[in-house]
Write a protein that binds this DNA or RNA. Sequence first.
DNA 1: GGAGTTGGCGTGATG
DNA 2: CGCCAACTCC
Length: 641
Amino acid sequence: MDLDQLNKEQREAVVHTEGPLLIFAGAGSGKTRVLTHRIAYLIEEKGIYPSNILAITFTNKAAREMKERVDKLMDISASNMWISTFHSACAKILRMNIERLPEYKKNFVIFDSDDQEKIVKECLKELNYNEKNFPPRNVLSVISRAKDQMITAEKFMEKNMSDFKMRKFADIYKLYQDKLKKNNALDFDDMLLKTVELLAYNEDILKHYQDKFKYIMVDEYQDTNYCQYKLISLLARQHKNLCVVGDDDQCIYSWRGADIGNILNFEKDFSGAKVIKLEQNYRSTKTILDAANHVIKCNYGRKSKNLWTENGVGKSLIHYNGSDEREEADFITAEIERLGMEETREYRDFAVLYRTNAQSRIIEEMCMTRGIPYKIVGGFKFYDRKEVKDIIAYLRVIQNPTGDLSLKRIINVPKRGIGIASIEKLENHAKVAGDSIFDALLELEEIEGINAKAKKNMREFYRLIVELMAMSETLSIAELLKEVLERSGYLKELEDGEDEATESRADNIRELLSAAIEFEKKNEDRTLESFLEKLALMSDIDNLDSSKSALTMMTLHSAKGLEYPVVFIAGMEEGLFPSQRSYFEDKQMEEERRLMYVGITRAKEKLYLTSAFERTIYGHTTYTTVSQFVKEIPKDLITRI
DNA sequence: GGAGTTGGCGTGATG
DNA sequence: CGCCAACTCC
């Protein structure tokens, strides 16, 4: 194996295979390269079986890339090696073992944030709590933070007995969890939490995975939360061959429970850990790196490190301040066209980054006017669309008819004359009998107060589901999808619709169909279960394909791990970036600054910072001041326009 | 039971 | 500005 193309530190990190290893990898210092070489080294030089390696990444996209790069480095295939995200690794473990946890069944479903919100709303209704006092999103974030910390509903209750409001949160949490169980569902946080529980309480299962994963690697370690830390420590306890890679300066997810302490305390937690710092940057010009270093220096409590590069000085940064967001967008798009001509750059060389998704719209409009091809990462996702979720709900019910939430979603979609009142009566009956709604559909004679017409429609619906369930035994997913569309009347409803929205809805359904075909082509496990799981765990960034050349727009968060020759960071204004919400706490302000650091270091050759003197947000126009982050960059590195 | 309208409210980033 | 719950009307 050829290790000559690596620098001294990189090489050291590759060959240090035994015992705990912490790699501090600055932005653009070639950490993916180190990880892929390390995997190849383990297999080719050390004779380790691929199946004994576990590599955890942050996104599916990163996992896929890593797999491809490892494959390229080696002669043998790495197909039975686990290179995946935390969530899909946990999904895999749970599929095989979840029945060892009381109350969960093998065919569990994964609830996304939409499902979660619906469940919380149900809880509030039942508990008679006001949505104004307990906004579902707030409730969910409290629950989610608790789960990150591995605080169960019961523990949460104990902890918060004395606080009037928090006790109510505890009530909601408890009921929420009960409802998930009733739906045989796990939310994203549960996937991790339940895996840790499974391993912690079942010595034999733990032993099995400890023995299997003799070598463990974790990417983006700075963004792990307590639960993920726990999972990793459990698995690595046996062999202690744990290699984590991260950069404390790029910790940008503390709002969802990431604990920067995990990386800062690694040496304490894993005694005898070796620490290697990768400080040579191969990505950016001196000027860009200089700017990044100056900004991040304003943070306290960092591990000392200093990124340097042998790259050239490059071009000066540019700060453009337009009169309003329209002018800002105009400048960005004009500049992209100009550079396209003068420097013969392709559209794929550019990225526009921003703090909030809402900022994309005006830039998008301007791209359309100028005929610049673009793609937007994040924001409203394909699988969030109503019609797609409807059809997925059908699949979920077929796979697991006792999932009340999905069943309620489709029982009257398309309209089949089963109204809210009737559904409530049905649900009530189910509740009293301790059954699912699906079961209650068989006991219609016993239910009073539903009119005969509705009952008839319910019977027909029941028959439809049973029919589809039978078909699912033999049909492929794509074929099953077609039957669902046909027999449910969903397709007909779409065809009858006249407005232009129906056309795009039909398009989306076709898109789902081709996703199913694609899935069956690419995967060995073609079960409905695994298809649904794949959909649930997919994130938007995973779809980012670079086949056609287009400008990329996304949030600064989504941009982590990516790089572009020319980068624009838009909306460099106080209150927007840094966000208003971060003013109250130094810690949060520091996280904003790390986000800025991440943004700057995405750029290879040219970096633009743009702002607007006047900005309209949610209908309100306000005057702005230029972001403090711009001022933290030395003046001589920036040209003002 | 269902379609259409209104008024109030929140509006950061995600697997 | 866009969404959702609540309300009105058929």
